[in-house]
Nucleic acid binder design. Structure first.
Lengths: 344, 344
DNA sequence: AACGTAACCGCAAACGTTTGCGGATGATAT
DNA sequence: ATATCATCCGCAAACGTTTGCGGTTACGTT
């Protein structure tokens, strides 16, 4: 029931006694059109409020000018914000983006990819779901030659362009910060064990311990599934160990929030009893009591790079080799890790 | 550089010595095709991994099966979550959604609408930007007969389907809750003065005061622009009044977060010195200290209704009259409003 | 044997653009 | 006057579908 009578190129052509092709060329400002007639065409197009039919245009050029974005969820600030910056960058390049959420489910991820293919996106940008450890659906995508770039949650099993953050370094520095503030027994609330990004951070954690001659103990690392209940339980379990940690690195602010919540209920004080540093720098970090120190990722920059890499693939005819951009992070130090009088 | 050699309906037709039309009909399971040949077509389509070209399909049916969603921002949990539920409902109906953010700017709102029209969405769902008080761009949308539904931030100047929440009632109850917990001097942190939804809530606030015989004083209501700095300043100004309020209703969790933050820095205790109740029930409400009581909106339900209303317009040929759905809310009572021993 | 009627399928137009090629026109050079 | 050449524009095909209409079969009826 949309505009039953939209004005087309032919309408303009008829009104001016021109051919459709001339009008088309005039509208696009091609050189082989007399300035006068071009002017007439543009004028009339304006008057008739001509809107080019994208559908037709798309068909002949077989381009849709849309890209697909697959995210684990939008209720994490990080991803919502990435959508923000990606959408901004895409718009500037004349693309629109359709978003899908996997809700961390592998099945939904393959379904969403299917949907995107079906709606003929020119390329896809994604961050892996918590539950995906098989990549056949992604290989299929690549076999169809649709340009792909992955950010944040990536996998080395996927040969695609990616923009990530130096997770090892970030975790190393975060852990270093805890140690230099006097923490001796460090614990880690990690993500699911098959999530590469979590393992990278864990490795940074481990290396920092080693570097400072502190013991690394598997019992002090918990792998959770990003749910609140699960993390609260694990957090309490961690503090019930014979010698509970006095500092914890959490993989994500959401995890930190939940553990802080659990600790508060049990009367465990932060940072006095245990310091916390986390990842993502959610804007609400500053609103908590204590405020949460967290590593900040350059979201704007990441979004810009992501679409840059995608565009590079989209607008080059020859296949372009996968490229990985590693950005650096910044530790935002706040109350949750400021341990007075505990420096060693 | 996408699949340079995608398999088309004609390929199947040639391979089977059929005509394109037959293949087309077979694929769509139309009755006038012999089961045998249909089977053959389906089989071959499967084997050749035939993917219908949406572009062509769209062109002839002049439908894009996509809807546009215009949001003020995605960094508010409420909107991110609405996107979530809208996208879910749309997907189930076979539509994909392209999102745009206005970043609260009127100019961006008109630009985004332009973009959406340009990319041929079949309908649009939106929530008004903070800064829009002129609706010409929306009227233009309607003149083009593109189905529209507005949620949350609406305006009575726009004759479109909408799904909203009973803001008056919600604010009334929230204020009632403050009063019944012993607050006597109530303040309100409102939104921009031209935002209808904020005024509705303000009216509920006022009516509750009146109902309980408490004085309403303009000096106790501040209209802010949703920015952190602005609200922090206003919040402190409010507490600097000769007789500062002992209870505050804030229009949104973000405003509450910022005022709580400001109060914390100034040593103003919540809820002892001043109680707070807010809107939106952001998931981080429970993580704050004190946890924040807030009115919850049925986001899932809102999303479902929004797309239901849009679909109704999309799939009916006759224009359908605007409809407004009013859902009810739920006050989630938490620490920020639990004033012990102050009951009157 | 002739006819009517389903059942099945193909032709061609249509959707609104873009684009290669060639045609007409007029000016310029010979 | 003719040949040459730009300049400007139209023809028609193409993109991959869908769909109204008409054509061919094959079968059962009389």
């Amino acid at each position: 029931m949309n505009k039953n009578t939209a004005v087309t190129i032919k309408d303009i052509a008829n009104a001016l006694n021109l051919s459709a092709s001339t009008v088309s060329r005039a509208l696009r400002g091609m050189p082989e059109i007399h300035p006068e007639t071009r002017q007439a065409v543009l004028q009339l197009a304006e008057d008739m409020d001509y809107q080019p039919n994208q559908l037709a245009k798309n068909l002949v050029k077989s381009r849709t000018k849309t890209i697909g974005l697959i995210l684990p969820t939008l209720s994490y600030h990080f991803f919502a914000s990435m959508l923000n910056s990606i959408e901004e960058a895409a718009m500037q390049a004349g693309y629109s983006v359709v978003v899908c959420q996997t809700n961390e489910s592998y099945l939904r991820e393959v379904a969403q990819i299917q949907n995107l293919l079906h709606s003929q996106v020119e390329g896809v940008i994604m961050s892996l779901a918590r539950d995906t450890s098989d990549f056949e659906h992604i290989y299929r995508l690549q076999r169809k030659n649709v340009p792909l770039v992955i950010f944040d949650r990536y996998s080395t099993d996927i040969d695609a362009s990616r923009v990530i953050v130096d997770n090892h370094e970030a975790a190393f520095k975060a852990t270093q910060h805890l140690i230099e503030n006097g923490c001796q027994r460090l614990g880690c609330m990690a993500g699911p064990p098959h999530l590469l990004i979590s393992n990278e951070r864990l490795r940074g954690f481990k290396d920092a311990l080693e570097h400072y001659g502190l013991p690394y103990n598997e019992r002090y690392v918990f792998y959770n599934d990003f749910t609140q209940e699960n993390t609260m339980m694990q957090a309490l379990n961690m503090m019930s160990l014979p010698t509970p940690p006095d500092g914890i690195l959490t993989m994500t602010d959401r995890i930190a929030f939940a553990t802080m919540y659990a600790f508060k209920q049990k009367g465990i004080r932060i940072p006095e009893d245990v310091a916390i540093v986390s990842f993502n720098n959610d804007p609400t970090c500053i609103y908590l009591s204590p405020s949460l120190t967290s590593v900040n990722q350059p979201i704007q920059e990441m979004g810009a790079q992501v679409v840059r890499l995608l565009l590079k693939q989209l607008e080059n005819d020859q296949p372009v080799v996968a490229e990985t951009i590693v950005l650096s992070t910044q530790l935002m130090i706040r109350e949750s890790s400021m341990v007075e009088g505990r420096k060693k």
